[in-house]
Amino acid sequence: MTFDVPAVDISPYVHPDAYGDADRAAVATAMDAVCATVGFVQVLGHGVPDEVIAGLAAASDAFFTLDADAKQAYQLPPSINRGYTPPKSESLSLSLGVESATKMNDFFEAFNVGTAASEFPGLGLPESDYSENVWPVEAASFRPGVEAYYREAGRVAHVLTRVFADALELAPDFFEQFTDHSLDVMRMNNYALPPGEIVLDGDLTGMGEHTDYGIVTVLWADQVAGLQVLGPDQVWHDVSPADGALLVNLGDLTAQWTNDRWRSTLHRVKPPIVGGTIRRRRSAAYFHDGNVDALIETIPTCVDDDHPAGYAPVTVGEHINAKLRGSRAGVLYTDSDRNAERVRSAAP
C-alpha cells in the first residue's frame, strides 16, 4: 500500500487579502480530507521566514553541543515541563498506556520552553502548568533564536485552527475561546547518539510510539531519516518534511473534539541510521494544546445517529497532565486503551 502525507498550501489563510473565499474553501476541503485519512500534513505557504528557521537551528546547536554538565544544570523535576531532558529519561509509549514500555529508553535529549503565567497577568493561571522558562546563559543566541521561532509557530497554529473551523463547518473564531491563553509548549529534540558506526541495544528507541496530546502540533525537522507514522494499513511508514514544509499533525484533543472524524495519528522516531551509521537529527515540535481550563466536548457537527459521542468531556489540563505523567514521570496512562491497542496490533 502506498502511504503519502499530502501537502496543503495555507497561503489563502496566511495572506487573506490576496485570495478569495473560494481559495480558502478549497484549502479547508483539502485539510478535512487529510485530517480524516492521514492525520499528518505537509503545510506549505506558512509564511515562517527562512532566517527564523535558521535561527532556531542555530539556537538548538548552541545548546545541545554544550558539555553534559552544562546541560544537566537545566534539568528540572518531571512535574515541570520546562528545561533539559537527558537521553533515556522518558518513555513516550507510557503516555499511551502500553504496559510493556516499562523502561525509560527513548534516547533523544530535549529542551522545553512554553507559555508562562506571567504573560497573562490577572488570569491567575496555575504556575504548575504555565511555568516560567529557564534560559541557558552559556548559549547567548539560544533565547532570541528560540523566541523568534516560537512566535511564528504559534501564529501558524492559530492559522491552522482557523482552517479547521472552516473544514468542520464551525464559526470562524470557534477555537479562539479555547486557545486565548493556550497551554503551548515547544520541545527541541536532539537525537544524541554520537556519529559513527554503532550497534544498538534492541530496546533503544529514538522516541517511542505516541500520539500528541493537544490540538495540533507544528513540527520543524531535519530531512534525516527517523520519523515514522503508523498508516491505516497498520504499517510504520517513513516520513520526512518536504522542501519548505512544516509537518503538522493532530493531537488527541482534536480527535476527541471531532469524535474520531479526524485522526490523532501514532508516530515514533527510530534511530537515524543511514548506510549503517548514525546521523544527527534535530527537530522542534510546537504543541498547541488549548487553555488549561477549557472543557473539550464533542463538536455537534461530528455527531449523528450513526456516530454518537464517544468521549466524555475533559478539560485540557486534566488530559495533558495525565499524559505527561506517563511520558515524563513513568506513570502508565490508563484513561483509554484505543491507542495502546493500535500499537500492539501494528506490524513490526
Rank of each mutant, 00 (worst) to 15 (best):
D4N: 14
D4M: 13
D4W: 05
V5L: 11
A7S: 15
Y13R: 06
P16F: 12
G20L: 12
A22H: 10
R24L: 13
T29H: 09
A30S: 12
V34W: 02
C35W: 13
V38N: 00
F40P: 04
V41R: 02
Q42V: 12
Q42E: 14
V43S: 04
L44D: 06
G45Q: 03
V48C: 11
V52G: 09
A54K: 12
A54D: 14
D61T: 14
F64Q: 11
L66V: 10
L66I: 07
D67V: 11
K71F: 05
Q72K: 12
A73R: 13
A73K: 12
Q75K: 13
P77E: 01
P78K: 05
S79R: 08
I80F: 00
P86H: 06
P87M: 10
K88E: 13
E90T: 15
S91R: 14
L92I: 07
L92V: 03
L92R: 07
G97L: 07
E99A: 15
S100L: 08
A101Q: 04
T102V: 15
K103W: 00
D106F: 03
F108I: 05
E109F: 02
F111T: 00
F111C: 03
N112I: 03
N112D: 11
A116Y: 06
A117F: 11
S118M: 08
L123H: 12
P126S: 09
S131R: 07
N133C: 07
V134W: 00
P136R: 11
E138H: 13
A139D: 08
A140G: 06
E152Y: 09
R155M: 10
V156N: 10
H158C: 10
T161R: 07
R162V: 07
A167G: 02
L168N: 02
E169C: 12
E169F: 10
F175E: 11
F178M: 13
D180V: 11
H181Q: 13
H181C: 13
L183P: 00
L183I: 01
V185Q: 11
L193P: 02
G196E: 11
G196R: 06
I198T: 13
V199P: 01
V199F: 03
V199G: 02
M207D: 01
G208P: 10
E209K: 09
T211D: 03
T211S: 14
D212F: 00
G214N: 04
V224Y: 10
L227T: 05
V229W: 08
V229Y: 10
D233W: 05
V235N: 05
S240C: 10
D243C: 02
G244Y: 05
A245R: 01
L246H: 14
N249Q: 04
L250C: 01
T254G: 04
T254R: 03
Q256S: 04
N259D: 02
R261W: 09
R261Q: 07
R263Q: 12
R263L: 14
P272R: 10
T277Q: 13
R279Y: 02
R282E: 05
R282I: 07
S283A: 15
Y286M: 02
V292K: 00
V292M: 03
D293E: 12
A294C: 08
L295V: 15
T298S: 08
D304T: 01
D305F: 00
H307N: 13
P308K: 08
G310A: 14
Y311L: 01
P313K: 00
V314Q: 06
G317W: 00
N321L: 10
K323H: 04
L324N: 13
R328S: 03
D337T: 15
A346H: 05
